[in-house]
Design a protein around this nucleic acid. Structure first.
Length: 428
RNA sequence: GCCGCUGUAGCGUAACCAGGCAGCGCGGUGGCCUGUGGAGCCACUUGUCCGAGUUCAAAUCUCGGCGGCGGCCCCA
């Protein structure tokens, strides 16, 4: 293989076994689209650079595949889908009744260093609800994320949940501007608290705000009620923050009522995307360090694009789900019968039989090689086919086909119609 | 962007530490064997990631690049 033609770093070929798992995950996601009323859409792979400069956050921004197209436009391969879908809704769906529920399954591109579960091209599913501020919408997003895990048979997962509104309410109370808030939350997200505090200190915001954030940041618990109680005690003098906490409590209660699995509340949790305004979460599988999905509320994003409606959504990571999925979740599907025509005069009968089988939906293959019967049987054996249909000069003469059961080793001479009938139980 | 491990045929590996003819298994192709001997036998197929350095001699030692795997960061 010429090494200048090798697959690019971070890109990969997806082989049949892996692809079958991915298909399984996608079909579960599409089933949930229908069960929950999300309409699937597709957005362009290439978007204007500006779309993601707006609110996607520093982390994603400097990992974009960006280039100038032949028309001189600054463009990127989408690093995420939410901004595109928000734009789609603003651009195309202004006359639709709210709420608008949109789903997607699309590939995205980020120029990260590849490692376990991280590629430069990967696939996300997505569930987005536009036009509702209600905690019911937040809870539904948590519910559908959780339901996907259940329906894929992934039991050992938990949801890490936080709320950017609480932190933002505190910062707003102390007069910190929004773009500074984005930076501070970004640093808190990276657990670089001291750097976040340096920014606040340089703005002369006093020690009180850093103290509040620090105490809030320390609250992490598997017991949501307990975490919320502690958080309330911290922000008791800031009504706007209390309001946000109440919102989080309501969301968690609704989510648990609908059957969301284990929840861990983390008040110091922020996310790298700047557009989040409220509840945020990530889904983790135990024993795997990386998130298999995430999401949150982003009430300001569509406003920037020209239609001010609240929104909440999530994105399951299809490749990462595949990583934790057992191979045996996908049924083996393979050819049931290999038709071997040993002489040229048998080809016509072979074609006729193959046509009849396939019309009935029986997975059938005609051996196209005209090799020794031994080798053809060897091929069928290695591939695990259930039956071979042998057509030689003897069969042509008697207008029959020898059907051999590869597992039992037995065989019988049958008319083509009889073979179709016998194997019709395998039709798909 | 940073760090660690690693790189031998299509795949899996031996030889590497301690420099001296690159070997094996699987696969693939062709042939032999009257059409079921799903086997066997024979033959063929293809390789030391790239580039410098040390050396009489480099798959082996050194350096750099590239790739793979993994970790940090971030996420999906």
């Amino acid at each position: 293989m010429r090494d200048d033609l090798l697959t690019l770093r971070g890109m990969r070929n997806i082989l049949p076994r892996e692809k079958a798992k991915i298909n399984k995950i996608e079909s579960e996601i599409r089933r949930l689209f229908k069960v929950y009323g999300f309409k699937e859409v597709e957005t362009p792979t290439i978007e204007p650079l500006e779309l993601f400069e707006l609110k996607s956050g520093e982390e994603i921004r400097h990992r974009m595949y960006r280039f100038t197209d032949l028309g001189g436009r600054n463009v990127v391969l989408r690093p995420e889908v939410t901004a595109s879908v928000a734009k789609l809704v603003v651009q195309e769906m202004r006359s639709m009744p709210l709420p608008i529920k949109i789903g997607y399954i699309l590939n995205v591109f980020r120029y990260d260093e590849p490692q376990h579960g991280r590629y430069r091209e990967f696939k996300q599913g997505g569930f987005e609800i536009f036009g509702s501020k209600s905690p019911l919408a937040d809870a539904e997003i948590l519910e559908v994320s959780s339901r996907l895990m259940d329906s894929l048979g992934i039991g050992n997962y938990y949801v890490k949940i936080g709320h950017e509104g609480v932190l933002r309410a505190i910062l707003t109370r102390f007069g910190v501007e929004e773009n500074i808030q984005d930076r501070v939350l970004g640093l808190i997200d990276k657990e670089k608290l001291s750097e976040a505090f340096e920014i606040l200190a340089s703005l002369q915001k006093g020690v009180e705000v850093t103290e509040l954030i620090k105490r809030l940041w320390e609250i992490k618990s598997r017991n949501p009620a307990e975490a919320l109680r502690k958080a309330e005690a911290v922000v008791k003098d800031i009504p706007e923050a209390i309001e946000q906490l109440d919102n989080l409590r309501e969301i968690i209660e609704l989510a648990q009522a609908s059957g969301v699995g284990e929840v861990i509340v983390d008040m110091g949790f922020a996310r790298g995307l700047d557009y989040y305004t409220g509840m945020i979460f990530e889904v983790y599988v135990k024993d795997l360090r990386i998130a298999v999905g995430g999401g949150g509320r982003y009430d300001k994003l569509t406003g920037i694009l020209g239609w001010d409606i609240p929104a909440v959504g999530c994105a399951p990571g299809i490749d990462r789900l595949s990583l934790v999925l057992n191979d045996d979740i996908v049924p083996k599907d393979d050819i049931i019968c290999l038709i071997i025509s040993m002489v040229k005069e048998g080809d016509l009968l072979a074609s006729r039989l193959a046509g009849m089988m396939r019309a009935r939906g029986i997975p059938t293959m005609v051996d196209p090689t005209r090799r020794d019967l031994n080798k053809a049987l060897s091929y069928a054996s290695k591939r695990g086919f259930k039956y071979v249909a042998i057509i030689g000069s003897k069969e042509v003469e008697n207008k029959v086909v020898t059907l051999k059961d590869m597992e039992a080793g037995s065989q019988e001479e049958l008319k083509p119609e009889q073979i179709v009938e016998k194997l019709s139980q395998y039709s798909i």
